[in-house]
Design a protein around this nucleic acid. Structure first.
Length: 278
DNA sequence: CTTACCGCCTGTCGGC
DNA sequence: TGCCGACAGGCGGTAA
């Protein structure tokens, strides 16, 4: 469920509290998430050093120190909570990062909570981040690439796959998950099941604008995440953005008042207006 | 190469 | 009311 905007908001919140602070300890409460946790490599990369920078690439939160990098993917249900007590843990807390006290803050912990354990945690050496296997094959950032519309059009050439599945392929562009794919296609008036290669350059230009608008609006709406993030409930403000089609099957389209349809496309539930999207 | 589909995992929800 | 199966979905792996 965390898509790019949620990861961006959480990363900013974590950066604002943790950048510059020393990682005093890493506490692991189990040895695997999706995959085994590379505990030794993580300790080597992070332990006893200040966090120089915490930033996002795709849906990965990246912790940079002089000794290397830690990479965290939140999967479906992952979240980081800032807490003063290591022992006061929510169910499904799998590891914690111990942050040294500063002049302004006591010793604190970032608790990683992830009921479904679809998250991933990895590490690499200084200078190795761009070539890390999690990142090496990823497409561009939708909010950073110069001409997203042209990029999508060129990448779509000859593809018969549904345009919605194409958008969700992180090799093409990162950060567009199931929710924002439906929302962006609705805004652009493009039917999600159309073959990607049949969508015109002008349509991709409009779609690119819609993707960027949707992501930006969601980031803005998630700007209050930090308050929740600090609290114990663990709900990091998903759906703070008003969703127009996603999850709204049976409701009326805001533009033409037709009933919103739900259909499985490439194995994912997809929502659209059969009149407004062609 | 492209594309479709499965499995991982647990909480939630609908149907009976 | 309670149980059980379906479903949610990012992402890697595999098969066609």
């Amino acid at each position: 469920m965390p898509e790019l905007p949620e990861v961006e908001c959480l990363t900013r919140a974590v950066a604002s509290v943790a950048e510059g602070r020393v990682v005093e300890d890493l506490l692991f409460f189990r040895k695997d998430l999706r995959e085994p946790i590379p505990i030794t490599a993580l300790r080597r990369a992070l332990l006893a050093q200040p966090l120089r920078r915490i930033y996002r690439r795709s849906k990965y939160m990246i912790f940079a120190t002089d000794g290397g990098y830690g990479l965290l993917h939140l999967g479906m249900t992952g979240n980081l909570l800032l807490r003063n007590d290591l022992n006061d843990r929510l169910k499904h807390t799998h590891f914690a990062i111990q942050l040294a006290a500063t002049r302004d803050a006591p010793r604190q912990y970032l608790h990683y909570v992830d009921p479904r354990r679809f998250g991933r945690l990895s590490a690499c050496k200084p200078g190795a981040i761009a070539g890390h296997p999690y990142l090496a094959e990823l497409g561009p950032e939708p909010l950073e690439i110069r001409n997203l519309g042209r990029h999508l059009f060129e990448a779509s050439c000859g593809r018969k796959q549904a345009v919605k599945a194409f958008l969700m392929d992180a090799h093409i562009v990162v950060g567009v998950g199931n929710i924002y794919a439906s929302e962006s296609l609705y805004r652009a008036g493009i039917h999600p099941a159309r073959p990607a290669g049949s969508v015109a350059a002008s349509e991709y230009r409009l779609l690119a604008q819609c993707i960027r608008q949707t992501l930006r609006a969601a980031i803005k709406a998630g700007g209050t995440t930090f308050r929740d993030y600090k609290s114990a409930d663990g709900e990091p403000g998903y759906f703070a953005l008003q969703l127009v089609v996603y999850g709204n099957a049976g409701n009326h389209c805001k533009k033409c008042h037709t009933i919103i349809q739900e259909q499985r496309i490439a194995g994912r539930s997809s929502f659209f207006c059969a009149i407004c999207q062609n």
